[in-house]
Design a binder for these strands. Structure first.
Lengths: 123, 123
DNA sequence: CGTTGACCTGGAGTGCACTCCAGGTGGGAT
DNA sequence: ATCCCACCTGGAGTGCACTCCAGGTCAACG
């Protein structure tokens, strides 16, 4: 018997990744997701790799990376292993952005706490 | 002599708050900022109170509160002191959102760190 | 007294990231 | 057999939060 590589239907990927089907199609259309394989009927069948990559995309998206930059990262990944240092640089830069976001939020949160305390002093 | 209340020109408020002049006008137009006072020539003169409120707006905006919700908060503030408990509720709910954001970012950041470490193992 | 520059208004335009739609196909359960 | 449902495509539409523009006013500086 032939080794059956595990594949995922669109519905399964929606379930797994939390992206809507429209978003998955959109990501494929703009090249954030490489052309996904199809079955005989032309329906998408996502590979394990596709799903893994979508996990990365979710992480970057949820940390506020713009699509344009994710596209650059996707291109580096496609270009092969020699781009690994560039990928590290990109991720480290992004990591600094995320760090800043966290610190900013924490500071704003202190302001909110003060405001709440101030309001509480009125009742 | 009459007590001269301190007022701010548009340029000063832009400087102080980091909002663009267009954004300030936009906020006034949609009612996030109450009708700002004018001088004889019809130019805006922001009060101390306006600037203080813009500080709050900046905090809420930078922590991701949608404008629609900021508008609700603004209405509570305008409605008078009896809405203070409601304002506290709103801010506490928002505080929980901010907390979630921070925790989410921290978790995603761990993923990024792992990815960087993984890439580093290749060179 | 002239020019520059900050400001005004109403309204149109922008960028991002989706999201929806019309019209159509194919396959599995009843 | 037939019905439904998941899926397909290309393209249009949406929502948010601004941002820009045209055409105009006013005041201070040199």
């Amino acid at each position: 018997m032939l080794g059956r590589v595990s594949v995922y239907t669109p519905a399964e990927v929606v379930e797994e990744t939390g992206f809507s089907l429209d978003t998955l199609r959109y990501y494929e259309k703009i090249g954030l997701l490489e052309r996904v394989g199809r079955n005989a009927a032309g329906q998408r069948r996502f590979s394990e790799e596709d799903v893994g990559w979508l996990g990365m995309v979710r992480c970057l998206r949820d940390t506020g990376m713009p699509i344009a930059q994710m596209l650059r990262f996707a291109e580096l990944v496609r270009a092969g292993d020699h781009t690994i240092p560039d990928r590290v640089k990109l991720l480290e830069e992004h990591d600094r952005q995320v760090q800043k976001q966290i610190e900013n939020l924490a500071e704003r949160q202190r302001y909110i706490h003060h405001k709440i305390a101030y309001y509480r002093s009125f009742c």
